[in-house]
C-alpha cells in the first residue's frame, strides 16, 4: 500500500467521521436532544439514582390560554401534550414549553371533552385522549383533527366507563378505568385483549386506578383508592404490591396518581395529597423523593400526571398551581 493510498483512506475515514458527527449534531439540534443525556438516561444506572433537578415550568399563555387543572402529560417527538382538564381541551407545547396548538373543545360530541385525562401518542403521531366523564377515548391527528373513538363505536358503549391514565407499550394500549377498577389492555386496532385486576382491596385487586405504566413484561398500576402500586404480568397475573413502606398498612403514597419509568428503569410515582414524587426500583424499593407543597419552582400543590422522556426529563402536572413542572435527570 502506497503512502498516497493510505493518506486517501485516512481522509475518507475522517470525512465519514465528520459526516457522522454532523448528522448526529443535526439530529440532536433538530430534535432538541442532548445525545449524552439520552445515553445517560437510557442505560442502566451505574450508581443509586438520585432525584432529578428542577428545570422549568409550563403555564400556557396568559388569560384564556392558561392551564387549569392539568391532569396528565405526554411527550412525543418534540411535542409536549397536556390535558388542560378544567378547560376541557388538550394543549400542545413545543419542547421549550411554548404553546403551539390545542386539541378538542368542551362537549360530549365527536372531538369534544368533558374531563380530558390520560394521554398517549403512538408511533404515527396520533394522539389518544381519555375522557373520564364522557367514558371514551378519542383519537386525533397530531394537528388536532378528530379521527374517531378508540375501542368503542361511540361513548354510549360501556366497554370503557371511566378511562383515566393511558400507557402505550409495544402494540398494546393499557387503560386504567377508575369506574371499572380495572386495567384494560387493547391492541392498537381497538380490540380488547385482556382485563387486569378486579374491584377490591385484596392483593391483586384495585380501587379507582388512575394510571398505569409498563416495563418489560410487567404492568404497574397506581391503585389510587388503596394507596399503593399493584404489579401484574402483561398476561394479567398478580406479581407483587408496594406502597413505599415496609409496613403495607402505612403507605408512603397518599392518593397516588401518575406513574412512569425512565430509561434507566427508575419508577416514578406521584403522591398527590402529600405533594411528593417518589422514585423506586422495579420491585418498589425507594430510591428518592422530591417536591414539596408550594408554588415556588420545583414544588407542587396536588401534583397528578407524570411522564419521563428519553432525555431524562420528568414532567409533572401541578393541578392547583395550573402548570407542568419539568425536572431533568
Amino acid at each position: 500500500m502506497t503512502g498516497k493510498a493510505t493518506w486517501s483512506r485516512l481522509l475518507t475515514i475522517i470525512a465519514l467521521i465528520g459526516v457522522g458527527q454532523a448528522s448526529l449534531f443535526s439530529y440532536s439540534y433538530v430534535t432538541k436532544r442532548n445525545p449524552v443525556q439520552v445515553l445517560q438516561n437510557n442505560l442502566p444506572a451505574m450508581a443509586a439514582p438520585v432525584a432529578p433537578t428542577y428545570l422549568f415550568n409550563i403555564y400556557g399563555e396568559w388569560g384564556e390560554g392558561a392551564l387549569l387543572k392539568p391532569m396528565a402529560v405526554a411527550v412525543a417527538g418534540r411535542r409536549i401534550y397536556v390535558s388542560d382538564t378544567a378547560n376541557q381541551r388538550v394543549q400542545v407545547f413545543d419542547y421549550d414549553g411554548k404553546p403551539v396548538g390545542m386539541i378538542g373543545r368542551p362537549g360530549q360530541g365527536k372531538g369534544q371533552f368533558r374531563f380530558p385525562y390520560g394521554l398517549a401518542v403512538d408511533g404515527r403521531g396520533q394522539v389518544y385522549v381519555a375522557d373520564l366523564y364522557n367514558g371514551s377515548i378519542s383519537i386525533f391527528t397530531r394537528d388536532g383533527e378528530f379521527l374517531g373513538y378508540f375501542g368503542e363505536k361511540d361513548p354510549s358503549e360501556d366497554l370503557l366507563k371511566g378511562p383515566a391514565g393511558l400507557a402505550l407499550a409495544g402494540d398494546r394500549l393499557y387503560v386504567a378505568d377508575v369506574r371499572k377498577s380495572q386495567v384494560l389492555a387493547f391492541s392498537l386496532d381497538g380490540r380488547l385483549v385482556r382485563t387486569i385486576g378486579e374491584k377490591g382491596s385484596e392483593p391483586g385487586q384495585l380501587l379507582s386506578p388512575n394510571a398505569v405504566a409498563v416495563s418489560g413484561d410487567r404492568v404497574y398500576v397506581v391503585d389510587t383508592g388503596n394507596d399503593r402500586v399493584e404489579v401484574f404480568s402483561t398476561e394479567g397475573s398478580f406479581i407483587e404490591e408496594f406502597n413505599g413502606s415496609p409496613n403495607q398498612d402505612e403507605s408512603l403514597l397518599v392518593n397516588p396518581r401518575g406513574i412512569a419509568f425512565d430509561g434507566r428503569g427508575v419508577l416514578y410515582v406521584v403522591s398527590n395529597l402529600t405533594n411528593h414524587i417518589h422514585g423506586f426500583d422495579r420491585d418498589g424499593k425507594p430510591y428518592f423523593s422530591f417536591g414539596n407543597a408550594g408554588a415556588d419552582d420545583g414544588n407542587f400543590y396536588l401534583p397528578n400526571g407524570l411522564t419521563v422522556d428519553d432525555q431524562g426529563r420528568v414532567y409533572v402536572t401541578d393541578t392547583a398551581n395550573g402548570r407542568v413542572v419539568v425536572y431533568q435527570n
Binding site: 387543572k69 377508575v178 383508592g225 398527590n272 395529597l273 400543590y301 396536588l302
Partner: peptide
C-alpha cells in the same frame, strides 16, 4: 376547593 376536588372529581370512585 382544589384540595377537595383532588378526590371529589370522579378520580376516586369510593
Amino acid at each position: 376547593n382544589a384540595t377537595c376536588f383532588a378526590c371529589h372529581d370522579g378520580t376516586v370512585t369510593t
